[in-house]
Amino acid sequence: MDHLEHLDKHLVDELAQVARETVRDELREQTRKQRRKAALYAASGALALYAGAALALAVGLALALGLPDWAAALITAVILGVAAFVLRGMARPSRPGEHAAGTRLPGRAGADQAAAGGMPYPPVPPAPPAGTAPGTVPPRPADDPDVPHHRA
């Protein structure tokens, strides 16, 4: 009988080792795919940055045909700044000072928290739970793990 228990323990250990190796291999494969995808996104972003710089240069040179160089550079900078501002506005879910649902939060703290996507405190229900008087705490169920158990 002791021999069977030893075999069972050995079998469980082998199964656990095979499961660990399988999970490790799967995670390694997923990590490799994610790393490749991240490198492709980074390369794409770098090329987009260079393309934007070339476009800004082309706009500046086109403006420089009829304007002084400094004015062409200034106009190109203003165009890029406006484009950045518009893109930033499009990326935000709501304007500062508004809650995600579109309701205005009170005061500056509300505006800061709306921009952060949260409220300063959890919402309060309009009425107490059924069967409890206002200002009292409802009793905990007997199977609540936080209730201390006293042994006699």
Rank of each mutant, 00 (worst) to 15 (best):
3 H>D: 14
4 L>H: 13
5 E>W: 12
7 L>K: 13
8 D>Y: 15
10 H>R: 15
11 L>R: 15
11 L>D: 13
12 V>M: 12
14 E>F: 03
15 L>N: 12
15 L>E: 15
17 Q>F: 10
17 Q>G: 03
20 R>V: 08
20 R>S: 10
21 E>K: 08
22 T>V: 00
23 V>Q: 13
23 V>F: 12
24 R>Q: 10
26 E>D: 09
27 L>F: 03
27 L>R: 09
28 R>W: 00
29 E>C: 00
29 E>R: 06
30 Q>H: 08
30 Q>P: 06
31 T>W: 10
31 T>E: 12
32 R>A: 00
33 K>Q: 09
34 Q>D: 04
39 A>W: 03
41 Y>I: 06
42 A>F: 03
42 A>K: 05
44 S>V: 02
46 A>G: 04
46 A>Q: 09
47 L>P: 03
49 L>M: 12
50 Y>N: 05
51 A>D: 06
52 G>F: 00
53 A>L: 09
54 A>Y: 11
54 A>K: 14
56 A>W: 03
59 V>F: 11
59 V>Y: 08
59 V>G: 10
60 G>I: 01
61 L>H: 04
61 L>P: 01
64 A>W: 05
64 A>H: 10
64 A>Y: 03
65 L>D: 05
67 L>M: 15
69 D>N: 10
70 W>A: 13
73 A>C: 05
73 A>Y: 12
74 L>P: 07
75 I>W: 07
75 I>Y: 09
76 T>G: 06
77 A>N: 02
78 V>G: 05
78 V>F: 13
81 G>Y: 14
82 V>H: 07
84 A>N: 01
86 V>C: 10
87 L>R: 14
89 G>T: 11
90 M>N: 07
91 A>G: 04
92 R>F: 05
93 P>H: 04
94 S>D: 01
95 R>H: 02
98 E>D: 10
99 H>Y: 04
99 H>W: 08
101 A>H: 13
101 A>T: 15
102 G>F: 11
103 T>L: 10
109 A>L: 15
109 A>Q: 11
110 G>C: 03
111 A>P: 11
112 D>R: 14
113 Q>C: 00
113 Q>T: 01
115 A>N: 10
115 A>Q: 14
116 A>C: 06
119 M>R: 14
120 P>R: 07
120 P>H: 02
120 P>G: 01
120 P>Q: 05
121 Y>C: 05
123 P>G: 02
124 V>N: 13
124 V>I: 15
125 P>V: 11
125 P>E: 09
125 P>Y: 08
127 A>C: 02
128 P>M: 07
130 A>N: 02
132 T>V: 12
136 T>S: 12
137 V>A: 05
137 V>H: 03
138 P>E: 02
141 P>G: 07
141 P>R: 12
141 P>V: 02
142 A>P: 04
143 D>I: 07
149 H>G: 01
149 H>A: 02
152 A>M: 06
